[in-house]
Write a protein that binds this DNA or RNA. Structure first.
Length: 421
RNA sequence: GUGGGCGUAGCUCAGCUGGUGGUAGCUCCGGAUUGUGGCUCCGGUGGUCGUGGGUUCAAGUCCCAUCGCUCACCCCA
């Protein structure tokens, strides 16, 4: 039995990778428009970084992390999300001192040891954005607008749901009211009874229609927000209105990580099976300080690249590989040598060129040229060579014309390059 | 961690109440066209039926185990 990739780990092969490149390029272009800078951070960190930021009692930390003991005895973890690493880098590199508001993005793999299913892998990829140094509500609105633009540029649509989780000042009162409500509620499902004790906020997210019915009368976090959080939230909404970004307030929306404060949001779709979120994020004003940095507010979000790629493929918007400019068809030993040199010379002019080295039949080489979606073919045979000529074939129109071979290879390549451009 | 579905050629799949693995489609290679791709036609390569046990005269088919994939729960991007 040959060795296979690990469960939940996938190869992204030619034919699929073009769609990924499209997603990444589209996002990078938009990130650039919003003046974000890229930051590349390690995928391996000390375990403590994640337990401190994500929260000890979250599912991620409790049962999903790829954690192992290093040779020197320290506990390391493959990052399950991007924010913690980026904030660590932000603090460690003193980026605060270089710019009061840092807008950063990073793209790369994340690791969570879950059971794989549609749109969910153990190694998955996110494009994530962090804006550090401002708690202005327009930053929140701008970030959501940016996520919205990326989806739009990809030709996808999703609905934006927003909520506010309040701050350490106002959330305790809500938690108390919620707990009180939940303990009075009757006939909660088993999951909700369990969650009521572990993470009361999560209960509101229950999918059981019976539970949801009861939660219609649950206290809303929005009624408990302190004046500061209330006005912040309404300014976020005003910001979205100013940019004409449609959204829906979902006071039941909760996030899976402990560090969120105030604004949270999700971009949701119905087209991904059980998975609905293609992007999500929120504000985390206390987190930088909690990780040992200055008291700097921040907000971020991440988009799941597998999910974006899945949606694009599903909607027939996948991206095909681009064809090559020229395929060199060579017949016979002398022509092979000439073609080999021509191929190299043309590549140096910036064109995509290929040829076959197996000395296959003309028919076969033409077939390869067609399959590679080459725009042109140059046919080099012994007859032509002896006359100092080759044949240039336009693969789409099937028109052919003789092509004089210049004595100097670079000259010839230059002439051909001009035709290709 | 829990539950459902599925493992037959490189890919997509037929294969009935057990009775010799399919002229199956696509791909690949060759030919029709002695030097011209796509379309068509013809031929060819390609299989430990996931693995290991069991039942049987006989197992791709039935039973058990195991591994893998997949969907869903939980949770999440």
């Amino acid at each position: 039995m040959s060795i296979k990739a690990l469960k939940g780990f996938k190869d992204i092969v030619p034919g699929e990778v073009e769609t990924w490149q499209f997603i990444e390029k589209t996002a990078r272009d938009i990130f650039h428009c919003f003046d974000l800078a890229e930051i590349k951070v390690p995928i391996l960190e000390k375990t403590e970084l994640f337990t401190r930021s994500i929260g000890e009692t979250t599912d991620i930390v409790e049962k999903e992390m790829y954690t192992f003991i290093d040779r020197n005895g320290s506990s390391l973890t493959m990052r399950p999300e991007g924010t913690a690493s980026v904030l660590r880098a932000y603090i460690e590199n003193g980026l605060l001192a270089k710019k009061t508001v840092q807008k950063l993005y990073t793209i790369g793999p994340m690791f969570r040891h879950e059971r794989p299913q549609k749109g969910r892998l153990r190694q998955f990829h996110q494009m994530s954005v962090e804006v550090l140094g401002s708690d202005h509500p327009r930053v929140d609105a701008e970030l959501m607008a940016m996520a919205w633009l990326i989806l739009k540029a990809l030709g996808l649509s999703a609905s934006l749901e927003i909520n506010s989780l309040g701050c350490p000042q106002c959330r305790p009162a809500f938690n108390a009211a919620l707990l009180d409500f939940l303990h009075k509620a009757e006939n909660l499902c088993d999951d909700c009874r369990r969650r009521r004790e572990t993470n009361p906020l999560r209960v509101l997210d229950c999918k059981s229609s019976h539970c949801q019915e009861q939660y219609q009368h649950a206290p809303s976090i929005l009624d408990f927000l302190c004046p500061g959080c209330t006005s912040h939230f309404s300014e976020v909404k005003e910001g979205l209105d100013l940019l004409a970004i449609p959204y829906r307030v979902n006071s039941f929306m909760v996030r899976g990580l402990d560090y969120y404060t105030r604004t949270t949001f999700e971009l949701v779709t119905n087209d991904l099976g059980a998975q609905s979120a293609i992007g999500a994020g929120g504000r985390y004003d206390g987190l930088v300080k909690q990780l040992g940095g200055a008291d700097v507010p921040g907000i971020g979000f991440a988009m799941g690249m597998e999910r974006l790629a899945l949606l694009l493929e599903q909607q027939g918007k996948g991206v095909a590989a681009t064809g090559m400019d020229l395929f060199v068809v060579a017949l016979g030993a002398a022509a092979q040598k000439k073609g080999f040199a021509l191929t190299h010379a043309l590549r140096q002019t910036g064109h995509t060129v290929s040829m076959d080295y197996q000395d296959r039949s003309l028919k076969n080489q033409m077939k390869q040229a067609g399959k590679a979606a080459a725009r042109f073919a140059v046919i080099l045979g012994d007859d032509e060579l002896s006359r100092g000529e080759a044949v240039l074939r336009n693969m789409e129109s099937s028109e052919q014309s003789p092509l004089a071979i210049a004595a100097d290879m670079d000259t010839w390549a230059g002439e051909l390059a001009a035709i290709l451009s």
